[in-house]
Design a protein around this nucleic acid. Structure first.
Lengths: 155, 155
DNA sequence: GTTGAATGTTTCATTTTATGAATTATATAG
DNA sequence: CTATATAATTCATAAAATGAAACATTCAAC
């Protein structure tokens, strides 16, 4: 990958290329998932993927980088449709634990199947490169979550 | 990276990890950019990053994976604020070429500075890994754009 | 034990963002 | 020349998120 380009315009492209690629992949993945489970919104998909074990609304909000109030509405919807249940957190009566129902487990499993396929198809990377890519992404995400929020957000 | 995990729950996490990481990075980048140029929406940022040279609305829509009508409103806004101009494409009088104004060039340059910083800070990857990551992302994006839309979209 | 501050979630008004059908003008194919 | 396709726009509508205020619970300090 040769970055020593004489044309200023091209170096501009290079500089913006990564964020464009991240965005493109993000959109593309969701677009593919839209075809398989259109009844779930983007955030609902991320929610279900993340909910591998019971989680508080506040913690889920941190992971999905939205306000808790956003998740209140989302959880209401998923609860109404039978995918999740709310239980009071025994450690703190202010908090709720969101847990998958049996139907939620089933739906999540199907979603993960679709996610895996979408990732393979969207990236088009062979196994070895996909593995490296996945490792880098995981490091990135751990870095982001460990670092916390960069700016004045309410949590 | 050992994928041979005995616990089904852990393998589920691994399966969803990549899309979660992509989403987290996507959100995180925009959150950082929100701090630096709050007057630009997510899509407007991507628009400006992509507009390294004059581009048709339809082509831009393909790149940003939105409908042309979405970009009509966005271009109206940016034009009104003096960042871009519309010129009829000499090769096809149905089409418009969106071009940066002088102010637009300046704003884009500043944005690219912020983008580069955001990428470095959000990923936390050292230069060498960042380079590999960038290469992989570029391959992914080329694959996505070359493949076209996976499903029945209007273009 | 008490008080004040902090925290977790919800409510609901408001804002933001994108979709999508219909339309008009232009281009293309036969 | 005619029929079909295409590029962009309009505007009503839908979807999605924010954010301030409120309430209950928890925590910290005295």
């Amino acid at each position: 990958m040769n970055l020593a380009m004489p044309d200023n315009n091209d170096s501009d492209i290079t500089r913006g290329e990564m964020i464009l690629s991240v965005a493109t992949l993000y959109w593309s993945l969701h677009e593919r998932l839209d075809g398989g489970c259109p009844e779930l919104s983007k955030l609902e998909r991320m929610f279900l993927v993340k909910l591998s074990k019971p989680l508080r609304i506040g913690d889920m909000a941190k992971n999905l980088q939205v306000l808790p109030s956003t998740l209140t509405a989302l959880a209401d919807d998923l609860e109404k449709r039978g995918f999740i249940e709310r239980h009071r957190d025994p450690d703190d009566r202010r908090a709720w634990l969101l847990e998958l129902t049996k139907l939620g487990h089933k739906t999540r499993a199907e979603l993960l199947d679709r996610v895996e396929t979408a990732v393979r198809e969207a990236t088009g990377l062979p196994e070895e490169d996909l593995k490296i890519f996945g490792e880098l992404l995981l490091r990135v995400r751990n870095h982001i979550m460990a670092e916390g929020r960069p700016k004045g957000l309410p949590f």
